[in-house]
Design a binder for these strands. Structure first.
Length: 546
RNA sequence: GCGCCCGUAGCUCAGUUGGAUAGAGCGUUAGAUUCCGGUUCUAAAGGCCGGGGGUUCGACUCCCUCCGGGCGCACCA
């Protein structure tokens, strides 16, 4: 409907102004249904350009407006100069048929068609199981990816990790310690070593495979680190799988060294006179980009800081030809990405192709008290533990229901008892209930499966409102994808469920005349389509029975 | 001290690129339905949108300032 309204408004403008508009027209759904189904503020925005009162412009526009009465039944001017439109029922019925015909494709748009997108998320180093803290990142990243896919983008999910460095060294040594202890050797974890039980499990695995054959090895021997990395990564992938998340690629930071990308970035920045040596270290002139201090890229001991591979990684992604590279970052990384953007820009890339989404931290409340999680100290709640309690659907829903930009207080106890009172059930229940009605309707009215349905039997206000709501699904997906905010979709599905229940209350199917039952059944097919498609985007199941 | 995020109903939160009378859920109160599926619906009460300035036809939304909370400001990742 929007393209149509835009078209007729453009024509009307040309008629009254003698020139084309050449400006976007804002069309939105009024908050108050009494203001119609769509409204534009065009007359108000034109007040300056035409040097006339908004209401006067609105009158001229409406006089000049030519519209198809099978689409629109009413046009009126209201308030300071809004032009309100009311849709024709016949048009709504046609749209409803389209929804049913589109089925599992309904809601897909071409807003991001042809775009190659790489979305990097999770990216936890393999030092331990994924925790509730990683959950928000993982679920947000995956759901944003799904939203972009529904708007036509070609999306690649990538997990970036680093299996070198101090933390991984400590991890290997910790495995050695447990391995030795399991053979009766009296030794202790290195300072800052990993205390989690899973370290013992990995050690036990080595014991089973090699007996005591590894006791002679040094604690720093690669075999311990590699065993740990492999076991932990298997776990991480399993956990992600339980959450319906599958990565397309895993990118090891190390490859940036092997390929020479790291060196190349430093040299290219040096060529631009943005890098210099001082105090034995290599510095990036971030003061050129408005920062108070320059930033170390390579420490005096010759090891790069994490910023350097970060920059190289982003250059690498852009060189791989993605139109858009999205990063899902926790709030603690908020200060680092400006450096990456600065470097990328300085090297001649379009920084708009990098989109960093920062979400606020999840604070954990366990047994009524907040506590700080630490992977090293084994003081955490794993995602697996959480899913054992509440399942994948509730877990995903919990992380998605709020704006990414605000803090999420995750009360473990509340999530565990969430069960029946959790809002996700409101959506799933609506879906299951509709499926049940459809099953019963098919039994009672076998003829509606074969006959054409006359949708004009949908006359109740609740029915019409429901159709109008269903039609907002594609736009909701567009908006949610554009803003990278899945919670908008949740809010919409909530509206759908509520509006359906209103319908359920007002309009019956079983026991009604066949023509009415048939039309209402069609309506419910469309509702169930939107609900199922919406839940699919969220990665949440849409059960037929509960 | 500097930078970023947040402050909306008793609680948890929405609020589309600045739009018309600021919404929902939970909780409270009063009703309806007892049904096609137990988790349903309707209504009421509840608000100086943290405070104060500014921008304009119009501000929860944009700018400035103050207050309050969180996070980040390493030759750690």
């Amino acid at each position: 409907m929007k393209p149509y309204l835009t078209e007729i408004l453009n024509k009307a403008f040309t008629k009254i102004a003698g020139e084309p508009l050449n400006a976007p027209i804002n069309i939105e759904k009024p908050r108050d249904a009494s203001h119609g189904d769509a409204a534009t503020n065009l007359a108000m925005t034109l007040a300056g350009r035409l040097k006339k009162a908004p209401r006067k412009i609105a009158e001229e526009l409406v006089d000049a407006l030519e519209y198809d009465s099978t689409h629109i039944t009413d046009v009126e001017i209201a308030g300071p100069g809004f032009i309100n439109f009311r849709f024709a029922d016949g048009w709504l019925f046609n749209q409803l048929s389209d929804i049913i015909a589109s089925g599992s494709d309904y809601g897909k748009t071409d807003g991001a068609k042809g775009k190659k997108v790489l979305i990097e998320f999770v990216s936890a180093n393999p030092t331990g199981p994924l925790t509730v803290g990683h959950g928000r990142n993982a679920v947000l990243g995956d759901t944003i990816a799904r939203l972009l896919e529904w708007t036509g983008a070609d999306v690649q999910r990538e997990y970036y990790f680093n299996n070198a460095g101090r933390q991984m060294r400590l991890l290997g040594q910790s495995v050695y310690t447990r391995y030795a202890q399991q053979h009766g050797v009296d030794c202790e974890l290195p300072e800052g070593g990993y205390e989690g039980e899973y370290i013992g499990d990995i050690a036990a695995g080595l014991k089973e495979a090699y007996g005591d054959g590894l006791l002679q090895k040094e604690p720093t021997d690669a075999i311990f680190k590699e065993a740990a990395e492999s076991a932990i990564f298997d776990d991480i992938k399993k956990t992600l799988g339980r959450m319906q998340i599958e990565m397309d690629s895993y990118f090891n930071e190390h490859t940036l060294y092997e390929s020479g990308d790291i060196e190349s970035v430093v040299n290219r920045l040096r060529d631009k006179d943005l890098v210099y040596d001082a105090d034995g270290a290599v510095w990036f002139k971030t003061t050129e980009f408005g920062k108070e201090k320059d930033t170390v890229l390579i420490k005096s001991i010759g090891e790069p800081t994490y910023r350097l591979p970060d920059i190289a990684y982003h250059i690498n992604k852009l060189d791989r030809g993605y139109d858009l590279c999205i990063d899902i970052f926790g709030a603690d990384h908020i200060a680092t990405y400006p450096d990456v953007v600065s470097a990328v820009k300085a090297l001649g890339y379009d920084a708009d192709r990098i989109d960093v989404q920062v979400y606020q931290f999840v604070s954990i409340v366990k047994d009524g008290i907040p506590f700080k999680m630490s992977t090293r100290k084994a003081n955490f709640v794993t995602l697996d533990e959480l899913m054992d309690e509440v399942g994948s659907d509730v877990t995903r829903f919990f992380f998605l229901m709020r704006t990414p930009g605000t803090h999420l207080e995750f009360d473990i106890a509340e999530a565990k008892e969430a069960g029946e009172k959790n809002p996700v059930y409101y959506l799933q229940y609506a879906h299951a209930r509709i499926q049940s009605i459809l099953r019963k309707a098919a039994e009672e009215y076998p003829e509606i499966l074969t006959q054409d349905t006359d949708l004009s039997n949908l006359t109740h206000e609740t029915e019409i409102n429901l159709i109008k709501l269903l039609l907002q699904f594609p736009e909701t997906n567009e908006t949610a994808a554009k803003h990278r905010e899945p919670h908008r979709l949740i809010a919409y599905l909530n509206d759908i469920a509520a509006q359906f229940h209103k319908f359920y209350h007002d309009c019956r199917i079983l026991g009604e005349p066949a023509n009415v039952a048939s039309a209402r059944t069609s309506l419910l097919k469309a509702v169930v389509t939107v609900m199922a498609n919406g839940l699919t985007i969220l990665g949440i199941s849409a059960p037929d029975k509960m």
